[in-house]
Amino acid sequence: MSEPCITAQLFGWPERTTSLACRLLSGTGSASIAAYRVNPHTNIPVIAHAATADGLIAVVLSEIDSLPEADLIDVRFDVVKQAPEITARITAATLHSLAVLTWISDDERAEWEARGAAPQHLFDAAAAPGSRLAALSVRRTMLHDSTGIHRVPLEQIAERLSALSQSGTTPFPLSADEFEVAEALRAHVDGELSCLMDCVLANACAGAVLRRDPSCGVPEAARGVTWCVDVDSTGVTLMHTGEEDTVTAFAAFGSPIAGIDELQRELAALVPAV
């Protein structure tokens, strides 16, 4: 039985990684910033972040003492996304950007909120005592995921995020949706994620093996397990930790999803319910 290869669609800049980058820039994952020209080793946690209708990334900060007193600050913006797993810590992807930070005044924040320039939870977080709202103008972004390191085409991403923001929607799923989506996946296969992995490996459904690594260093208790690395609007990324090697694979949906009902439909098309 031949192992599925990474198709040409998964190389370069496919829909899968475009969708993932949009989610990370829109609030998924844990974010931080660092003023790399002044304090490159001091990371400041981002309380909340989201894309705006103007093509900027809005961030809410509270621990800002290490930032220089300036109107424009060169910063590194990092986002780390963990897999929706409770019993294991698996990094699904990281995003690294160079950007210019600009502080948003109270009047500007009120104007942004009045016209719905960003999700409401961002303004709620910014209204907390000691919090400040800032905007990031991103100049360069790199995404590191299961298929390697990719340079993000910012114009394409900005156009998509701006269109979503103007329509009052966001990329799916974001952080608030991830565990519900992962549970819906597990419920469909009765907790047996390996059956979906087997479908990909047997070429029984659309998908690809993204990478294969030695299992050295993996605890014995974690071997023989299939993990959910990520559920995206474009498909499911799984990882199986075997005795000798660890395989990461992607099961592709027939069309992008935007909610739980559509997820159920696409899962049924990939593999019958167990």
Rank of each mutant, 00 (worst) to 15 (best):
A128W: 06
D71Q: 11
R115T: 14
A134Y: 06
A182Q: 04
F179L: 12
W103D: 06
S131L: 09
A114R: 12
D145Y: 08
H144V: 13
L143K: 00
L72I: 10
R151Q: 14
D74P: 04
D145M: 03
A206S: 15
S146I: 00
D198G: 13
C195A: 07
Q82C: 12
A83C: 01
V189C: 10
S146Q: 13
P173G: 08
E155F: 12
K81A: 15
L67P: 02
A184F: 01
E155K: 14
G116R: 03
G148P: 08
S66V: 10
L122H: 02
R140T: 10
F179Q: 08
Q120L: 11
L193D: 01
R160E: 10
P129F: 05
C205Y: 09
S175L: 04
G130P: 08
V189D: 04
V189K: 02
L154N: 11
D71E: 15
A134C: 10
T170R: 15
L133H: 09
G168V: 05
L201E: 10
A202V: 01
R160I: 08
W112M: 10
L95D: 03
M197K: 08
C205Q: 07
D78I: 05
V80L: 12
L143R: 04
N203D: 09
P173Y: 04
T141G: 11
P129C: 09
S162C: 15
R132V: 14
D78H: 13
A110K: 09
F123Y: 03
A126D: 04
G148E: 07
C205H: 07
E69H: 15
A182L: 03
S194L: 07
E111V: 11
S66G: 14
I104D: 04
P171Q: 02
E69C: 14
G148M: 01
T169F: 14
L193I: 05
T170F: 10
A163F: 11
A202P: 02
A128I: 06
A88P: 03
T91K: 09
V79N: 05
F77L: 02
P129Y: 04
L164K: 07
A202M: 09
V79H: 00
E183Y: 07
E108Q: 12
H121P: 15
V80I: 12
T94A: 07
A176F: 11
S97Q: 03
I86W: 11
A134T: 02
A83H: 01
E85C: 05
V200R: 02
L136W: 00
P129I: 02
S131C: 15
L164V: 00
H150N: 03
D74Y: 01
L161F: 01
V181A: 12
A158K: 11
T169C: 13
S105F: 01
A114T: 06
A187S: 12
A118M: 05
S131F: 15
E180K: 13
I104E: 08
P153I: 01
S105K: 04
R132L: 13
E180L: 12
F172R: 06
A158M: 05
L136D: 07
E159K: 15
F179H: 10
